[in-house]
Design a protein around this nucleic acid. Sequence first.
DNA 1: GGGATTTTGTTCTCGCGTTCACAAACTTCT
DNA 2: AGAAGTTTGTGAACGCGAGAACAAAATCCC
Lengths: 221, 221
Amino acid sequence: MTARTSHETAREIPEATVARLPVYLRALSTLSEGGTTVCSSEDLAAAAGVNSAKLRKDLSYLGSYGTRGVGYDVDYLRYQIAREMGATRDWPVVIVGIGNLGHALANYSGFRSRGFRVVALLDADDRRHGEVVAGVVVRPFTDLRAIVHEHGVAIGVIATPAAAAQDVADTMVGAGITSILNFAPTVLNVGLGVAVSKVDLSKELQVLAYHEQRKATAEPA
Amino acid sequence: MTARTSHETAREIPEATVARLPVYLRALSTLSEGGTTVCSSEDLAAAAGVNSAKLRKDLSYLGSYGTRGVGYDVDYLRYQIAREMGATRDWPVVIVGIGNLGHALANYSGFRSRGFRVVALLDADDRRHGEVVAGVVVRPFTDLRAIVHEHGVAIGVIATPAAAAQDVADTMVGAGITSILNFAPTVLNVGLGVAVSKVDLSKELQVLAYHEQRKATAEPA
DNA sequence: GGGATTTTGTTCTCGCGTTCACAAACTTCT
DNA sequence: AGAAGTTTGTGAACGCGAGAACAAAATCCC
């Protein structure tokens, strides 16, 4: 999996950098909409909320897209990062589990604007089938395989309760999906070739509560 | 801020460990519900999806709650982690921005079960006021200060569009909130004493797309 | 054209986090 | 009771990432 042969692309982008590229992309879009055509690493770093040295180092993994003494062309840099991230092409996505969260995700405009197209909404519950959410009709979970093959879907989103998540993941992998974004609060077991990313809505809140508690106990006024 | 005098609590829990404690908590709850009363670090690590050595080191920052040759008492360890995280007390929370995402968050059962109580839902849009979501009535954003004072709220959740987020954050801080969980896709500027945590729904998807693209270009079958 | 100025790209150092490996401590079996 | 077997807790090695600092390259001004 992680082994790389030397004939492959030379640039090996660190995972920490990859995780920040979407943030830079968003900051560049904001700058561009605001009418900025050129920005320094200092400007962009401020907009992205990071250190300017770190930003420059991150960008250097992609190539030399800046001009010394001047800065970066906003639209050009944005295009280069988007291309590197795969955001210039269209990614068909399926969402499984159309509860409150699935609804919110289906309607989330940030997906569409980043190149993700929701091609299907699936749910195991018969009563939801036929319902239209965000312009897409909810279909039976059993249609997954056909949809994946028809649209060439590589990415699946799980927004089901925890109890159903592993089964959904197994079916996704069986249907040919190779990347899963999991919103269910459970650890998924998948094969080696499959990438799983997890978003835990309450985890961040718990970390904040921890720090609140420490503040309260450390300084008893 | 980060300076620590020596008379304070001896145990200095690394940030990376704090971020994993909620995961352990969840895994322990699952084990407990499944009837497991004692587990080894190997078992718990598997349930949490981490390395067992890392798990043991993480737990060692909290204290010695295991028994050599035996393992950990599930409920006892769960209580100890919950206490350390502040999950044994009740945390009043306000959610601002009751769109699709705000709806989903208000209904998310994971908040309540982790000790978070949604005391108010706020929105700037007049037309939403009075609407009842998850048993809580939606109130005007201008009520924020009164609500924060009344319930002693320390934690606020922002689920507004990006354009409104900074204003909401400023108002929150002015009202006395010291921890913010931001779901809006924008970088927030806040004072030193305020903690901000950010969840970007599309960021994870973009990282997955990047790896998909790399897989596709690296091995052209 | 040439020096001063600005800003990028990169090297170097430091610290944190992960993992290995093992001693300490507890249980079980004889 | 004592030896064998388990499993925790931790010391030490290692690797990655963050940030400071600087050299290279472009623009600006005269």
